[in-house]
Design a binder for these strands. Structure first.
Ligand SMILES: [Mn+2]
Ligand SMILES: [Mn+2]
Ligand SMILES: [Zn+2]
Ligand SMILES: [Zn+2]
Lengths: 143, 143
DNA sequence: AAGTTAGTTTGTAATATTTACAATTTAGAA
DNA sequence: TTCTAAATTGTAAATATTACAAACTAACTT
């Protein structure tokens, strides 16, 4: 889906130098849909680039977040996770399995932005509305 | 607002022993509206109970979460925060100041639960809808 | 009221995650 | 090809949290 060309262009457009580490990290983050942690990314990218330093993972992710190429996401658990999808979206999250999936819903977004256009919150101006839908992935109902 | 009697009853009803540490932690968490971290709680509660161990803060908070007396909340920053309000509510959050405030809105909740009653998400059953309203507290507009 | 004990707290050490920093390497401009 | 700012690496430090065993205590029993 996301070609190496696109990846390279994204990094380049952000004014960053193209390095194997950066390309591979971003590529891996695009491929993994599970909102991985720095540690998970380190494990995956290490297989492609042996000798990779954990520091590079943290540096790279921070830089990408700073440049808006990726986003941080958090769950109820303790570790930071990362998301290659920067377009506005929400998350389905199961606290038991700590599994998190993307949820896109333009109709819902319309309803919410209409609502908050009418209803002003005193002392606070809303710039982004993020939903976390808590629940269960029906991993049983697999007949 | 929240009397010591109430605090004690809450802890007791959860099947836990009443200790000065637990009473003071829960009392402090009720008083502080800023969704404090374990560290902030340790600092505050230490003033009342000198000799308090950080471990006790972590133990106590974990126990309270387990028993449903308090909730964990997360921001985009790295540290876990805690919330004495267990009733359903949402959060206003400013990423710049890392400030987080409670937001109650039954009308919105109605709209959302109506929406998700109609619109089923395949493979996922929603049990709780949490909004994080990103934005700015208008800390300038103080004339 | 004293005795008993399971539950709680404490202190220390370990783990996990993340950051700081200086030396080395490298991408990409000149 | 040369040069340099930027990036990566390795190590050590900081931060946040957890594990664990000894000491203590709330509250039940007598
Ligand atoms: Mn941390
Ligand atoms: Mn941690
Ligand atoms: Zn996502
Ligand atoms: Zn809250």
């Amino acid at each position: 889906m996301e070609s190496t060309q696109d990846i390279v262009k994204k990094i380049s457009d952000a004014g960053l130098k193209i390095t194997p580490q950066r390309v591979t990290v971003l590529q891996m983050l695009c491929k993994l849909k599970n909102h991985p942690t720095a540690d998970e990314l380190f494990a995956e990218v290490s297989q492609i680039l042996p000798g990779l330093s954990p520091t590079t993972i943290y540096n790279t992710l921070d830089t990408f977040v700073e440049k808006g190429l990726i986003k941080r996401v958090k769950t109820d658990a303790d570790v930071m996770r990362y998301d290659a999808i920067t377009d506005h979206h929400h998350h389905l999250y199961c606290a038991v399995s700590d599994r998190m999936e993307d949820y896109f819903d333009p109709e819902l977004d319309r309803i919410l932005s209409d609502y908050f256009n009418k209803k002003q919150i005193s002392g606070f101006s809303v710039s982004d509305i993020r939903l976390q839908l808590m629940g269960d992935f029906n991993e049983n109902n697999k007949n």
